[in-house]
């Protein structure tokens, strides 16, 4: 079943120079954090904060291109997590036919916010997230994180 998400904000992860996009399920308020690059994080932040840059940024160009060609974006879905990588699909409609394009979630979200279309994910992603986040956290631990309190 698809779960509708809203974008809560973009945080900077001080350890890794990456940014974390916080998505929240609209029904039960569960949070889905997605790590993205600094550039992609900014593209999402700009859209959230309604910042207008003097020049069209890359996702503005993408949106403008879709509008020129009459390709209507319907929705984006964060579809799965594999090895800590999130996958997303962008659904487009043209002349009555619907098709989907593989995308990074960051691009899909940056585009969805600019085009005012809903962002969804699935129950499966939420279930995988619980396990994967823990694994990722464990994987990032280094030996010096242990044993600080040994006598």
């Amino acid at each position: 079943m698809d779960i509708k998400l809203s974008v809560q904000g973009v945080l900077t992860d001080p350890k890794t120079e990456t940014q974390v996009v916080l998505l929240r399920a609209e029904d039960n308020k569960e949070v889905l954090p997605i790590w993205v690059g600094a550039v992609e994080g900014n593209a999402i932040k700009f859209a959230l904060e309604g910042i207008l840059s003097g020049r069209p940024m890359t996702h503005d160009l993408l949106k403008s291109m879709l509008e020129h060609l009459g390709l209507r974006i319907q929705k984006v879905i964060i579809t799965e997590i594999k090895n800590n990588t999130y996958y997303a699909l962008i659904y487009l409609e043209s002349g009555g036919s619907l098709f989907s394009i593989d995308s990074r979630p960051s691009d899909a979200i940056a585009l969805a916010l600019r085009s005012h279309v809903p962002i969804y994910t699935t129950d499966e992603v939420f279930k995988q997230r619980a396990g994967d986040s823990l694994d990722a956290w464990l994987a990032r631990l280094s030996p010096k994180d242990f044993g600080e309190h040994t006598a």
Binding site: E40, A43, T58, H59, L61, L62, M65, L66, L69, L71, T85, I90, L92, S94, F99, I101, D102, S103, R104, D107
Partner: peptide
């Protein structure tokens, strides 16, 4: 984005300009 294209660097996930190209090709 330009140097990846110049050097033919393959990224496992599509970068933003790859996405743009993929959307155009699919249409």
């Amino acid at each position: 984005a330009i140097s990846f294209a110049l050097e033919g660097v393959f990224t496992p996930r599509p970068m933003t300009h790859d996405l743009m190209k993929n959307i155009l090709e699919s249409s």
